[in-house]
Simulated assay, not measured.
Amino acid sequence: MDTDAPLLGEPLPVELMNTVWADRDGVHDALRDRDGVRAWLRALCPRTDLLTPNDLDELTASDLDRLIGVRDALRRLAAEVTEDPRPTAASDPSALEAAVTVLNEAAGDTPRWSALSWTPGRQPARHTRTSGRAIAATVSAIAEDAIALFSQDTRHQLRACLGPGCVLYFVKHHPRREWCSAGCGNRARSARHYQRHRGTTS
């Protein structure tokens, strides 16, 4: 089963934020149940050296809760950084401190470290090792990447997509990028064209 979540090639913390997404039928949660979480993590396997498809058999209710808690914390922090005006981003200002706590706890939950392998006649390679379960280590790694994203100047490149009905976030790597995807850009241009046309005919 493939994940419902849009995968836009964003950093993993942003991909996790975007497991809440919207279409014409409303707002959806790709992590709504165990199958949804498993599908999203399976899609991530090629992007992390901590997780393999076989590890997904170990998914627990605690893993699901931790991943959703980190996702919700990331969305709260992203709303703060981007000054997100969308109604779906509104939250109690005290939730900021709670979001930071969730993120810090998740980052420290499962230790990870780098290990070097080097066989004579081959190129050296870096691998990530963990003392815990791969799923828990992956959630911790995403949380740590998020701490790097929010604590460095790169946080100023984070954007809330203001396309009609969109609830996604993206990192603005190109100065002309305004939307999370070409589809959102097309919908926004169509909406502007409609408003201009309606304004001239009324």
Rank of each mutant, 00 (worst) to 15 (best):
G36A: 09
V37D: 07
R38C: 07
L41V: 12
R42C: 08
R42E: 15
A43V: 00
L44S: 02
P46A: 06
P46E: 06
R47C: 00
R47S: 13
T48E: 01
T48C: 04
T48Q: 08
D49R: 15
L50P: 06
L51H: 08
L51C: 06
T52W: 05
P53Y: 07
N54M: 09
L56F: 09
E58R: 15
E58L: 11
E58K: 14
L59Q: 08
L59D: 02
A61F: 00
A61R: 10
S62V: 14
R66M: 11
R66W: 04
L67Q: 08
L67W: 11
L67D: 07
I68C: 10
V70G: 02
R71H: 01
R71D: 04
R71K: 03
D72G: 01
A73K: 03
L74K: 05
R75L: 10
R75I: 07
L77F: 10
L77K: 08
L77S: 05
A78H: 03
E80F: 13
V81Y: 01
V81W: 03
T82R: 07
T82K: 05
R86D: 11
S91I: 00
S91R: 12
S91A: 13
D92I: 08
D92Q: 04
S94R: 10
S94V: 05
S94L: 03
S94P: 00
A95H: 10
L96T: 11
L96W: 08
A98V: 11
A99Q: 02
V100R: 14
V100W: 14
V100N: 05
T101K: 14
T101M: 09
V102N: 01
V102R: 11
N104Y: 11
N104C: 11
E105Q: 14
A106F: 00
A106C: 08
G108D: 14
G108M: 12
T110P: 05
R112D: 02
W113F: 11
S114Q: 13
A115T: 13
S117R: 15
W118D: 10
T119P: 02
T119N: 12
P120N: 02
G121R: 08
R122M: 12
Q123A: 14
P124S: 01
P124N: 07
P124A: 09
P124K: 01
R129Y: 01
R129T: 02
T130N: 09
T130K: 04
S131H: 10
G132I: 13
I135F: 10
I135S: 08
A136M: 05
A137R: 04
V139E: 06
V139D: 07
A141S: 13
A141P: 00
A141N: 07
